[in-house]
Simulated assay, not measured.
Amino acid sequence: MTTGIVKSHADSDFQSWNALALAGDADDDGKWQFWFDGHLRFKDDASRLGVSIIRPGVGYKLSRDTTLWFGVARVTINSDNGSIEEDRVWQQATYSLNQFMGGTVSGRSRLEQRFRNDEGDDTGYRFRQFIRWSKPLNEQWSMVIWDEVFFGLNDTDWGQNSGFDQNRLYVGPAYRLSKNWRVEMGYLNNHIALPGNNPDAITNHNLALTFFGSW
């Protein structure tokens, strides 16, 4: 099940995805962490709001390289048939991986439980795997490539399908605004599977702008 950003049966779209992400220490020794990300995604050639997301969470740092997280999310989808509200509970692990081609590699593995009580009673389980590569170019600029793949783990009465759901591939620069802030603006390719074993797919071309704050 896609997130309501599809215009019709097999249309593709140009979209503008904008986000703010915050993370950092929630206590003095840095074991407990806080997480927040908020999103505004504009569809139909970036002319109107399609999806908004608010996603807070808390984490516990197991080591310098690995943190476990728990959180919730509220997703509002503005579809052609009206507004759809989706609630989520999520768990994830974030971790650092090996160096590759002069850059750092990190990962995120997330499990979501999705609820759309106005459309059905089932809980949708979905797994998301994210891998990010970043290479500094100088003190302020770096190059970023990341990919995230989504898999539905079950079918629901409100429309989620098991199996491959979508893939997101991002390429673009990052600029460090200050010690605690950076901004990334680049191209995000969103490849979405259609339901019912349909061999067609939708590919949306997105301009992605994200501000990151860390403490």
Rank of each mutant, 00 (worst) to 15 (best):
182 R>L: 13
193 A>H: 01
68 L>W: 05
149 V>I: 15
205 H>E: 10
78 N>E: 08
31 K>D: 03
155 D>V: 09
182 R>H: 07
146 W>D: 02
117 N>C: 09
123 T>R: 07
42 F>I: 12
41 R>C: 09
84 I>H: 11
60 Y>I: 15
93 A>H: 01
27 D>I: 15
73 A>R: 07
44 D>L: 11
93 A>V: 15
54 I>V: 15
141 W>D: 04
32 W>G: 07
19 A>Y: 11
106 S>H: 02
69 W>E: 01
129 Q>K: 00
20 L>M: 12
151 F>V: 14
62 L>K: 00
75 V>R: 04
163 G>W: 06
155 D>I: 08
14 F>P: 00
74 R>C: 09
64 R>T: 11
211 F>A: 13
17 W>A: 09
89 V>T: 11
127 F>E: 02
87 D>P: 04
56 P>N: 02
191 H>N: 09
4 G>T: 06
145 I>H: 06
45 D>R: 06
183 V>T: 12
5 I>P: 02
208 A>P: 00
67 T>G: 02
79 S>K: 04
28 D>R: 13
122 D>S: 14
68 L>P: 00
121 D>P: 03
87 D>A: 13
102 G>F: 08
202 I>N: 02
188 L>R: 01
8 S>L: 10
193 A>G: 01
175 Y>R: 00
77 I>V: 13
158 W>D: 03
166 Q>N: 00
24 G>L: 09
39 H>S: 06
197 N>E: 03
132 R>W: 00
5 I>Q: 05
198 N>K: 07
56 P>G: 04
101 M>K: 12
202 I>M: 05
107 G>C: 07
43 K>D: 01
2 T>S: 06
136 P>N: 03
129 Q>A: 07
173 P>Y: 07
94 T>M: 01
144 V>L: 14
209 L>A: 12
26 A>C: 12
174 A>F: 07
57 G>R: 01
144 V>E: 06
149 V>Y: 02
30 G>I: 14
155 D>C: 07
97 L>I: 14
76 T>A: 12
5 I>C: 09
163 G>Y: 08
105 V>R: 03
110 R>D: 05
32 W>F: 14
62 L>S: 05
79 S>F: 05
63 S>P: 04
57 G>N: 00
64 R>C: 02
96 S>R: 05
171 V>I: 15
114 R>V: 10
170 Y>P: 03
207 L>H: 00
11 D>V: 14
16 S>A: 15
43 K>N: 04
68 L>V: 15
186 G>W: 06
26 A>R: 04
14 F>L: 10
67 T>D: 02
52 S>Y: 11
143 M>Q: 04
173 P>S: 09
